[in-house]
Amino acid sequence: MKISTKGRYALLLIIDLAQHQDEGFVSLKEIANRQGISKKYLEQIVIPLNQAHMLSSNRGSQGGYRLIENPRTISVYDILSATEECMLPVSCLETGNHLCDRENQCMIKWMWEGLSEVTQDYLKSISLQDLVDHTTPSKQTR
Rank of each mutant, 00 (worst) to 15 (best):
M87W: 00
H20E: 13
Q35W: 04
H53D: 14
N58C: 09
H53L: 15
L12I: 14
M87D: 01
S116M: 04
C106E: 02
K124W: 05
P48A: 07
P71H: 13
N33S: 12
Q21L: 07
A10I: 08
Q44W: 11
N58Q: 15
S91H: 08
M107Q: 15
Q35P: 03
V76P: 07
R59N: 03
L49R: 03
C86H: 07
T5I: 15
I74R: 00
R72E: 10
V76S: 05
S38A: 14
I3R: 03
M107A: 05
T95R: 14
M107T: 11
I15F: 04
I68D: 01
Y41W: 12
S75N: 02
K39G: 03
G63N: 10
I14R: 05
V76K: 06
S116C: 04
S91M: 09
T119I: 13
S38K: 08
G36D: 07
D78H: 13
P48T: 07
H98F: 09
N97E: 02
L67F: 06
C86W: 07
A10D: 05
E85T: 15
E94C: 13
N70V: 09
M111S: 03
G64N: 07
W110G: 11
Q105V: 13
S56F: 05
L55A: 00
G64V: 07
V118Y: 04
E69H: 11
K109R: 15
W112Y: 15
E117A: 14
P89R: 08
L49P: 03
T119R: 12
V90M: 00
N104T: 05
L55Q: 06
M111N: 14
Q62V: 09
N104V: 05
G63V: 04
C86L: 09
V46F: 12
L93C: 01
N50W: 13
F25Y: 15
A10Y: 02
Q44G: 09
L93S: 01
I31W: 10
P71C: 11
A52V: 05
Q51T: 13
C100D: 01
S116Y: 05
L88Q: 11
W110H: 14
S38C: 08
